[in-house]
Every structure is written in C-alpha cells, then in structure tokens.
C-alpha cells in the first residue's frame, strides 16, 4: 500500500486545522510517514536525527535573541512608539502608509515586534480614528473598519518584508527545506528574490490606503 505514506500529509493538514499541538503533530507525521514507507524503527530514528542535524541552520536565529532582548530593555519599543506618535494631524492613509513603511523597514533589519499588541491596538488604530474623526462623524461601522484596516496593514508589512532579513526564520526555513529537497538555495538568494514582492506590496497597499481616505471625505458636504 504505497499510498499509506501520504497519511503523514493528512495528519499535518488535519492536525494544524484542528489546532492540535503543532510540535506533536509534526513529529507524529514524520513517524507515520517513515514507518509506512517501509523504514524500520532504527532507520526511522536515524533518518529523523540526520534530518534534524542537517536542518540546524534554520535555528540560527536563536543567536539574535540576546541582542534583541537587551535592546527591548533599553527602550527599542518606546523609541518606535514615540517616533510614530509625532505623526499627529495627518490623514488616515498617511498614518497607515508610514506605519507600513516602518514595518517593512523593520523587516529588513530583522526587527519583528509584535505589531498587533504593541502598535496597532494602543497606537495606530486610535491615531487613524482621530484623523478620520476630524473629517466627519464616525459610525460604529466606520470604527470597526478602521480597526480592521489597521490590523491588516500590520500583517501586510510584517508578512511581505520578513523575507528581506537573512536570519529570519522564514528565509532560513526556505533555504534549509530546499537543501533537504536536494536544491542549493542560499539565504541571500532568498532575500534578493523576495525584493520584488516586498516592493509590489508597498505600492499596492499604498494605493489601497489612499482609496480608504475617500470613505471619510465623501459625506463631508452632506453634513
């Protein structure tokens, strides 16, 4: 039954979808795949151990943690917050676009703050709401849209720029997985190939945010 070894894929898909413990799901999937492909227990242990050892580069990002921890203690987050706070009296789209640029630039230098908790909720959403309120009275629906948009912009900047840093988990994962699949792909190559997508995201989301401003201009005359 050759197809039984595809059970490992089923376990991964179902396990992640049902929110089982991710570490356990991955290890179980590896065991099931190996055993159904006809490996003995000893071959399974050897394959697993060898694969884990050759994929150690993925975890090199651990080396960056002590520095980031210290920088956080000495005000990394506060400096960023103070900088963004200076952007008062701007249109909603300007605040959103500047935050997007800050988030993408952070990605280039491997600074990944937990944006939703540290920036969107306490800072970006209130500032965008204030900027929109200057233009017209906001309905509860408007405010909900602003919250959603601020969170979305954080995700855009976070996702599509994180591959611009050579030591980010995603870049190392791509490089190492390709090595496992017998193709040599260096982290630097992944970074250079990710530049077009990061730039396109910047442009498209910029336009998307500028269009968002219209929503708050439209009814001004009607009031």
């Amino acid at each position: 039954m050759e197809y039984l070894k595809l059970l490992g894929i089923v376990i991964i898909v179902v396990g992640f979808a049902l929110k089982w413990d991710t570490t356990a799901v991955v290890v179980v999937s590896a065991i099931v795949t190996a055993l159904f492909s006809g490996m003995s227990v000893m071959e399974l242990l050897n394959t697993l151990g060898t694969a884990f050892m050759t994929n150690r580069p993925v975890s090199l990002f651990f080396l960056t943690l002590p520095m980031i921890g210290l920088a956080e203690r000495y005000g990394l987050k506060e400096v960023a917050v103070n900088g963004i706070r200076k952007l008062k009296k701007m249109t909603p789209s300007r605040i959103l676009n500047l935050y997007l640029a800050v988030r993408e630039l952070g990605g280039v230098f491997g600074i990944s703050l937990s944006g939703q908790v540290q920036f969107v909720r306490p800072l970006i959403t209130p500032m965008v709401t204030a900027a929109a309120e200057v233009r017209r009275k906001l309905t509860p629906k408007d405010i909900d849209l602003i919250k959603g948009r601020a969170a979305a912009v954080d995700n855009f900047g976070n996702f599509f720029a994180q591959n611009l840093f050579v030591a980010s988990g995603s870049v190392l994962l791509i490089s190492s997985t390709m090595e496992s699949l017998k193709y040599t792909v260096t982290p630097i190559q992944v970074v250079t190939r990710s530049i077009p997508v990061a730039l396109v995201t910047l442009v498209i989301v910029y336009i998307y945010n500028v269009l968002f401003d219209r929503r708050f201009k439209a009814t001004k005359g009607a009031a």
Partner: peptide
C-alpha cells in the same frame, strides 16, 4: 527571550526536518 520563544521557536526546524523525511520516504514522487 529564549524561553518566550518556546516550542514554536523550534517549529521551523522541525518542519524542515519533516520535509527531509518526506523526501526520504518518496512522498514528493508519489
């Protein structure tokens, strides 16, 4: 910092390992 990363911190390496196990088992070919 290291403790706050927790088990999810090792997930990328485990997933890359799984990729290698898939290759060894011939999942991609199938």
């Amino acid at each position: 910092m290291v403790r706050s990363v927790g088990a999810p911190g090792i997930l990328p390496q485990l997933l890359a390992t799984l990729g290698a196990v898939f290759t060894a088992a011939g999942v991609g070919d199938l």
